[in-house]
């Protein structure tokens, strides 16, 4: 009957349009901009200048003593490396946070060092941040959210307000779920290679989740959805190779952190 044929046509139109646009989603203009390596480095330096105005940086000797053993083990297991990684330690005990900017720069707040139970947990977080770098999430996010204005900021030698906006954006945790999940996956893989149990990251998430409420609201806390059950489960269920044993860091963590 004609009426059924018409209904079929209607349903077909519905399905086909959906399928067509799922298959080939409309890409928004402006997301294809590329940030060259040199520009990325320039911008990373500008962001660092801005952060130096705002926070106290610990000396390289302190960074080498506290973070050195951890980052060396992680980077030795990372091959090939997209960037030459540089780690910075910022003095702010109220920020339980670590974030990545551009060109391999990773910033860690002293508040995070005091919060974690052991260096293995910190290694997990750093591996996650390295993951954002290696997956190209940072450039991707900057270009998506700020696009041309980022390029303009670099080309004009760094408009102070603009640079400050960019660092604020990178400091806040605004990756989407997919990027977070991929960075987590990356972290698990790297941790296993570096002989650190991915479950350490789950311990950290659980600690965040339980202690989140006991901290004041204005406290900046790391990562978009720390209390996500999936992330904890993901870290706990990551398959370990046979005969694999964790090698703990030979650090007196509490003592190291005490002096910060």
């Amino acid at each position: 009957m004609k009426i059924w044929r018409e209904l079929l046509i209607l349903i077909l139109i519905f399905g086909l349009i959906w399928l067509a646009f799922t298959w080939r989603p409309l890409s928004l203009p402006g997301t294809d901009l590329k940030l060259s390596k040199e520009r990325e480095k320039d911008l990373a330096d500008l962001i660092m200048d801005d952060l130096e105005d705002e926070y106290e940086f610990y000396d390289d000797s302190v960074v080498a003593k506290v973070l050195g053993p951890i980052t060396t083990r992680l980077l030795d297991s990372l091959n090939p490396q997209k960037y030459e990684y540089k780690f910075h330690l910022l003095d702010d005990t109220h920020e339980i946070n670590a974030f990545a900017t551009l060109d391999g720069n990773i910033y860690v707040f002293s508040g995070l060092l005091k919060f974690v139970d052991n260096p293995e947990q910190l290694a997990g977080i750093l591996a996650h941040e390295i993951g954002h770098h290696e997956n190209g999430d940072l450039v991707d996010r900057l270009m998506k959210e700020l696009g041309l204005s980022v390029l303009a900021a670099v080309l004009t030698g760094g408009d102070a307000v603009m640079i400050s906006e960019i660092s604020k954006l990178l400091l806040s945790s605004g990756f989407d779920r997919k990027q977070e999940r991929e960075a987590d996956e990356f972290a698990y893989k790297l941790m296993v290679k570096a002989k650190i149990n991915p479950a350490r990251l789950a311990h950290f998430f659980t600690k965040l989740k339980t202690e989140e409420k006991s901290y004041p609201d204005d406290l900046e806390i790391i990562m978009t959805h720390p209390n996500s059950k999936n992330r904890i489960e993901g870290a706990l269920s990551y398959p370990l190779p046979e005969n694999w044993n964790e090698e703990e860091f030979d650090l007196e963590w509490d003592k190291l952190v005490e002096n910060l």
Partner: peptide, 19 residues
């Protein structure tokens, strides 16, 4: 829950707009 814009959802939105 998901915090992830899938292509499926984007396609659906465009389809909804057309309808």
């Amino acid at each position: 829950f998901d915090w992830e814009l899938t292509d499926n959802f984007k396609g659906y939105l465009i389809m909804a707009l057309i309808f």
